[in-house]
Amino acid sequence: MIAISKSQLALRNGQDKPEIWIAFQGKVYDLASSRLWKSGRHYEHWAGQDLTEELKSAPHTAHVFDKFEPIGYLK
């Protein structure tokens, strides 16, 4: 896996670049294939950032990431 900086992650927000990336527990995922993340937004959450803390208040568990392969890790 490749190392991805917070600034690289921030640019992959579905707005500045077409990629829709988020970080969770140190891993970076590309969620562009998810219909729930169109335009880089999922309810009140935005792509391009680390969502580890935000998942604690989500109505689902971390298993939602099981269907996505990590593309890198957050350095």
Score class of each variant (00 low, 15 high):
I2L: 12
I2C: 01
S5K: 09
S5C: 05
K6F: 12
K6P: 02
Q8N: 04
Q8F: 02
L9W: 05
A10Q: 12
A10W: 02
A10C: 08
A10G: 05
L11H: 12
R12T: 02
R12K: 14
N13M: 09
N13E: 09
N13D: 15
G14Q: 03
G14M: 04
G14C: 10
Q15G: 00
Q15H: 07
D16N: 15
D16I: 09
K17L: 11
P18V: 09
P18Q: 06
P18A: 07
P18S: 08
E19W: 03
E19Q: 13
E19Y: 05
I20M: 02
W21K: 06
W21N: 03
I22C: 06
I22D: 01
I22E: 02
A23T: 04
F24C: 03
Q25W: 00
G26C: 09
G26E: 06
V28E: 07
V28M: 12
V28R: 01
V28C: 10
Y29M: 04
Y29H: 03
L31F: 03
L31E: 03
L31W: 01
A32N: 06
A32W: 01
S34D: 06
R35H: 08
R35P: 03
L36S: 14
W37P: 01
W37G: 03
K38F: 13
K38S: 11
K38M: 12
S39T: 11
S39Q: 13
S39M: 10
G40V: 10
R41V: 15
R41Y: 00
R41K: 13
H42T: 04
H42V: 02
H42G: 01
Y43C: 00
Y43A: 03
H45K: 02
H45L: 15
H45V: 00
H45C: 00
H45T: 00
W46R: 14
W46H: 14
A47C: 08
A47V: 06
G48N: 12
G48V: 11
Q49S: 13
D50F: 03
D50K: 05
D50V: 04
L51F: 08
L51I: 15
L51V: 14
L51N: 08
T52W: 01
E53L: 11
E53Q: 15
E54P: 00
E54D: 15
L55G: 06
L55Q: 10
L55A: 10
S57T: 13
S57D: 15
P59V: 07
H60Q: 09
H60P: 05
H60I: 10
T61P: 05
T61W: 03
T61I: 07
T61C: 04
T61R: 12
A62L: 09
H63W: 07
H63I: 05
V64D: 03
V64K: 06
F65Q: 05
F65A: 04
F65H: 08
D66S: 14
K67P: 00
K67M: 08
K67C: 07
E69I: 04
E69R: 12
I71K: 02
I71V: 15
I71Q: 11
G72F: 11
Y73N: 13
Y73V: 13
L74G: 10
L74V: 08
L74E: 12
K75W: 05
